[in-house]
Nucleic acid binder design. Structure first.
Lengths: 313, 313
DNA sequence: TTTAGAAGAGTAATCGATTACGCGTTTAAA
DNA sequence: TTTAAACGCGTAATCGATTACTCTTCTAAA
């Protein structure tokens, strides 16, 4: 009929095409989905769409999938497990063909659904050992950051951490520890500055206050590696307020290469994640699962990161 | 049956509920949509999901609609008319119940579809005079910004503009002009610095280079009102590079209250848009159109903005 | 006791696109 | 010329939920 199925003559084709153009016929995807058991739609679960890095990734995934004929339902979960599970049910009801789950999503309901529909995780440890995981090389990034500070002369580097329940956070801590070890620098628990997972005050304020508190307690650091750029900016502010010169007396490294980092003063040195690479790998992996289920996809893909030196080291 | 339609006994209800819980039945939204001619889905057309202000708005719209039982398909159009129209067709095929169109979307196909499904525009002049428009009071914001600079002592204020095809941009120019007029300050065309609508170099670089070029030509300004914060940061950099002291010799105002503005050095004074207000008004207007079509909704809703004074004025 | 009316349960049509199937016609091969 | 295969086209079933409709049974009123 409309597409090459069935057999029909040139004449009928013309007639059909005429009617189509005359009436402005548009195919009804809902009916099509019901019949085909396929919606050409994929779902994305993301904790916070306004987070600069992941919104970039989502944007690129969406563009890629659109070019392949898929539309994307983006679900903002606010790190709320109930909302996540509600979305999961909704997406299932909409017969999505695939699902991408981005960092920080707990989604306990995932396990029950993942049997039927293909899932790709980004920056999120899947429970199921077969689920595909795409992530930046957080370990490498943290190592590079810490190493760079050491090479510039820092000897007592703090690490500022938040949301340790994320595997990406833990990987970054490990990378940091590895660098200290490789350069034979001592490490003690008091070098870890842990921040609560709250919305108010902002991450920057939180980091600033925490580092300032450490200074007040008499702890001395000559550098801080923050797990993201927002925290790093707080560290910069704390150091400056404490009368330290950056970078000669105190060095700071961030992570994520937030668009802020280039414009804050002093300009923040950081680790750039390859949003394009992550988006491409994730989209391709998901498409492959959907369209050629027999083809094996690498279960764990790790994307290289890049050291960006600006003015804080 | 499942919901209160039809008549049935307590006994049958129990049986049905038992089977539901045993089999883990989930309603199929696709079939439901086909039958009901309603998808409980709304579409959002947005030029760039990674833009900080609108991504905040979208996030809030999505949360609101989710709480009302709707899911949201977010379509990133990249300011590409073809992509916009393709999305429009796709959304129509998915039988969306409503559509939100955000600033910078051209979507020529909108006219042909808007007859059938409810549309709400945000920050975008609709062609159709009946379509609802929600926007910040750009005029007021620009006026407040310019007025604040004048009151602090600026007399020759430039305005840095990009994407003049947006009604929001034009409103901001008008607000700026009105303030100059109200304070009896002269205005000439050379005070307008127009920037091309390109992706590379960044808006900040663009603004910086343009203002620097004006300085080099011998033009003198004691302040600049930039149409958004990215441009404003460029203006700050240009002024500093030109040896001007901020704010005593040169004042800068931005617009949008980008998350950057609080952290750049000096901290940027700007105009804050009420993302929550816009999201709420837009969602409520759309829901009203969908669920109570007879009820009239204000065609044009203008949301107040707020002057934020930091260190650049 | 008869009967109108209500109430429960089951059947079938519907939404729109897809596709398997069958009938009738044409063409090519034996 | 006969037979088989190819071909065009129309019909009907299907996807899953909803709902209108019918049929049967039961209750209450006359």
């Amino acid at each position: 009929m409309i597409n090459n199925n069935g057999r029909f003559s040139e004449e009928t084709r013309k007639k059909v095409e005429k009617v189509i153009s005359e009436t402005g016929y548009e195919t009804n995807d809902v009916a099509k989905s019901l019949r085909m058991q396929k919606s050409n739609t994929i779902g994305i679960l993301i904790p916070d769409i306004s987070s600069s890095f992941f919104s970039k990734v989502v944007k690129k995934i969406e563009a890629f999938l659109f070019s392949k004929g898929y539309s994307t339902i983006i679900c903002n979960t606010d790190r709320n497990a109930d909302k996540e599970n509600a979305y999961l049910r909704m997406l299932e009801g909409k017969m999505i063909d695939g699902l991408i789950v981005i960092s920080g999503v707990k989604a306990f309901g995932l396990d029950s659904m993942s049997k039927n529909i293909p899932v790709v995780c980004i920056d999120r440890e899947p429970r199921d050992k077969e689920t595909i995981l795409i992530e930046s090389n957080h370990f490498q990034g943290a190592f590079l950051a810490t190493e760079a500070m050491i090479q510039k002369g820092s000897r007592k580097i703090a690490i500022i951490v938040q949301r340790e329940y994320l595997s990406s956070s833990r990987d970054r801590i490990n990378g940091y520890c590895q660098a200290l070890e490789d350069y034979s620098l001592p490490f003690s628990q008091e070098q870890i500055i842990r921040l609560p997972d709250v919305i108010e005050p902002s991450r920057t304020e939180l980091a600033k206050a925490a580092l300032l508190a450490r200074f007040k307690k008499g702890q001395r650091f000559d550098g801080a590696f923050a797990i993201n750029d927002r925290l790093a900016i707080g560290a910069v502010q704390a150091a400056l307020e404490n009368g330290l010169t950056i970078p000669s007396e105190f060095r700071v490294m961030g992570f994520d290469n937030d668009s802020i980092s280039k414009y804050c003063q002093p300009k923040l040195s950081t680790i750039n994640q390859d949003s394009t690479g992550i988006a491409e790998k994730a989209s391709q992996a998901l498409l492959s699962l959907i369209e050629t289920p027999t083809k094996k996809v690498a279960r764990h893909q790790v994307i290289d990161v890049e050291l960006i030196v600006r003015e804080t080291i």
